[in-house]
Computed example of a mutant assay.
Amino acid sequence: MLDDDQKSLFMAWLQEHSSAVMKVARAYTLTSEECQDLAQEILLQAWQSLAKFERKSAPATWFYRVALQTAMNWQRKDKPRRSLQKPLLEVQIISDSNFGIQQVQQQEVVDQLYKAISQLPKGDAALVLLYLDEMSYREMSEVLGISESNVGVKLNRAKKALNDLMKGTNDEH
C-alpha cells in the first residue's frame, strides 16, 4: 500500500473508530491524562500495524483488536507505577448552562460504569467494551480470538461481575 493510500485509509478509519479508541483508553486508565496517553499509544500502534492488515476481518474488528491489545500491554507494563499512584482528585468543571441535573446524573453513572469496568479482569473488560459497542458475538470472537460460545459464557460472567461492582459502587454513595 502506498503511503498516501495508507494515510487516507487510516484517517477514514480514525474518523469511524475514534470513539472505540476512547472507550478502550478510558476503561484501562485512572485519569484523563492517562486516557489521553493511552489513546495516543493506541493510534500509534494502529498506524504502525496498518501495513500488516490483511483484510481478513472487518476494519472495525481489526481496529478494536489493536486498541485492546495495546491497552492490555500498556496496563501490564504500567502496572508497577500505577499501583503506587492513585488519583488524588478527579476534577470536572461542569457549567450549569451546559448541563442539566439529569445530564450530570447520567455522567455520574457513566463514570461509575467505567470505574467498575476498570476493576474487571482485562479479558472481561474487553468483552464488556465490545458488548457496549453493540458488536455481535461473532465480531467479539474475531476481535478476541475465542469461539462464539466462549464469548457468551464469558460475557455472562463479566456482566454479573460488572453488576456486582456497580451495586457496590452505588452502595458507597
Rank of each mutant, 00 (worst) to 15 (best):
L2G: 11
D4E: 14
D5M: 13
K7A: 14
S8D: 14
S8W: 09
L9M: 15
M11H: 08
A12V: 06
A12T: 07
Q15K: 14
E16G: 02
E16N: 08
S18M: 14
S18F: 11
V21Y: 00
V21H: 00
M22K: 05
V24Y: 02
V24C: 08
A27N: 02
T29V: 06
T29W: 01
L30W: 05
T31E: 01
S32D: 11
E34S: 07
Q36R: 15
D37H: 10
L44Q: 06
A46T: 05
Q48M: 08
A51Y: 02
K52S: 10
R55A: 08
K56P: 04
P59W: 02
Y64D: 02
R65G: 00
V66N: 00
A67R: 00
Q69E: 09
T70F: 06
M72A: 12
M72R: 13
N73Q: 06
N73E: 08
P80K: 04
R81Y: 14
R81G: 12
L84R: 08
Q85E: 11
L88F: 08
V91K: 11
V91I: 14
I94Y: 05
S95T: 04
D96E: 13
Q105M: 13
Q105W: 07
Q106K: 09
E108C: 09
E108M: 06
D111N: 11
L113D: 06
K115V: 10
I117N: 05
S118R: 15
Q119W: 04
K122F: 11
G123C: 10
G123V: 06
L127V: 03
L132H: 12
Y137E: 13
E139N: 12
M140F: 06
S141G: 15
E142Y: 06
I146S: 08
E148W: 11
S149F: 05
G152C: 15
L155P: 00
N156L: 13
R157I: 12
R157P: 04
A158S: 09
K159L: 12
A161N: 15
A161W: 01
D164Y: 09
L165S: 13
G168M: 08
T169D: 11
